[in-house]
Structure formats: C-alpha cells, structure tokens
Computed example of a mutant assay.
Amino acid sequence: MSLHVVLVHPEIHWNTGNAGRTCLAAGARLHLIEPLGFSLDERQVKRAGLDYWPQVELRVWKTWADFEVTLPRLGDPWFFSTRGRQPFWDAPLAAGEGTVLVFGRETGGLPPALHERYAERFVTLPMSPSPHIRSLNLSTSVGIAVYEVLRQRRVTQP
C-alpha cells in the first residue's frame, strides 16, 4: 500500500520541511505542486527537515494538471479543507491500494476548481468552534492525516 502527501502551492518553507520529515517517518512520498512560495534550495527548507531532507522521497510537479494525470495510479485521493463535508476520521482513508492526501496553500487552501471537481472527496479536521481560529497549521494537518491513515491500516490489516 502506498501513501502520498500532496501540497498544492505551499507558501511556507517550514511547513514543507516538516511535512517532508513526517512523510519520511511514515514511509510516504511527498509531492509538491508549483508554484512554490520559496525555493527548495533554501537552507530553511533543509533546516526544517533537519538532516532528514535528503532522504525524503520528493517529486515536484509544474502544475496540478500534470499531477492529476498520474493521480489515478497513485490511489484514492482525499482533499483536506476547512470546508470539507465530513470529518476525516469518518472517511475510509486507507480503504484502497493507495492513499493520496491533498492539502492546499497556507493562506487560501485548495483552488475552487478542485472543490467543484472532487466535492465528495473533501474532508475536514474537526475543531472546536471559535472566532479565534480559522484552521490548523499545514504541517500539523499533514501529520494528523498521515497518522490517521497509518492507524486505519493497522486496524484493517491482520
């Protein structure tokens, strides 16, 4: 079973570095969809991923359209958004041969076209209602989702 994390237009190098470290720890592949809000050559990305960054299984895509061609071969996609229709823990994230977890940019989330095309595949990370918080940090969200997939796989596999 394969696990993929996709960051669409990430803007903050720390989040990408931390997501890469989580992917490495979980045996997942990290996909980045350009444009990126930073250079992957920046030492801050490497610092966020610490000495693990060179071992991260990374693929960078020029556009979502380029990546989307490959998506069916990678597994079942799940899109994370504060506007998701169901809590992520109610979704069968690990039901197929592969799982693809898709996250949007820090300041704007995923593009409206993806919300329309994949509406039934959108999930959310539940939060207590509060006027003081709009969303969780991107790398925190990646970590929560990745480990939920691992938990579901552990429960369903003998």
Score class of each variant (00 low, 15 high):
29 R>P: 01
29 R>M: 13
29 R>L: 04
30 L>H: 07
30 L>P: 01
30 L>W: 01
30 L>A: 06
31 H>L: 08
31 H>F: 10
31 H>P: 10
31 H>Y: 06
32 L>N: 09
32 L>W: 04
32 L>C: 03
34 E>R: 15
34 E>N: 11
35 P>C: 02
35 P>H: 01
35 P>I: 13
35 P>V: 10
35 P>T: 11
35 P>A: 08
36 L>A: 07
36 L>F: 09
36 L>K: 10
36 L>Q: 06
36 L>T: 13
36 L>H: 06
37 G>A: 06
37 G>C: 09
37 G>N: 08
38 F>D: 02
39 S>N: 05
39 S>G: 12
40 L>P: 05
40 L>D: 00
40 L>E: 00
40 L>N: 06
40 L>K: 08
41 D>P: 06
41 D>W: 07
42 E>A: 12
42 E>Q: 14
42 E>R: 12
42 E>L: 10
42 E>D: 09
43 R>P: 08
43 R>V: 14
43 R>D: 00
44 Q>R: 15
44 Q>G: 05
44 Q>H: 09
45 V>G: 00
45 V>A: 02
45 V>F: 03
45 V>L: 15
45 V>D: 03
45 V>P: 02
45 V>M: 05
46 K>I: 15
46 K>N: 08
46 K>Q: 13
46 K>G: 09
47 R>V: 14
47 R>M: 11
47 R>H: 12
47 R>Y: 00
48 A>G: 06
48 A>R: 12
48 A>N: 01
49 G>H: 03
49 G>K: 07
49 G>S: 04
49 G>V: 12
49 G>T: 12
50 L>I: 14
50 L>N: 07
51 D>M: 07
51 D>P: 06
52 Y>Q: 11
52 Y>H: 11
52 Y>C: 06
52 Y>F: 10
53 W>Y: 08
54 P>S: 04
54 P>K: 10
54 P>L: 06
55 Q>H: 09
55 Q>M: 11
56 V>G: 04
56 V>F: 02
57 E>Y: 05
57 E>T: 14
58 L>T: 14
58 L>M: 08
59 R>F: 00
59 R>C: 07
59 R>T: 15
59 R>D: 02
60 V>D: 01
60 V>W: 04
60 V>T: 14
61 W>K: 12
61 W>A: 06
61 W>S: 08
61 W>E: 00
61 W>N: 08
61 W>M: 04
62 K>L: 07
62 K>D: 03
62 K>G: 01
62 K>S: 10
63 T>S: 12
63 T>E: 04
64 W>I: 15
64 W>G: 08
64 W>Y: 03
64 W>P: 06
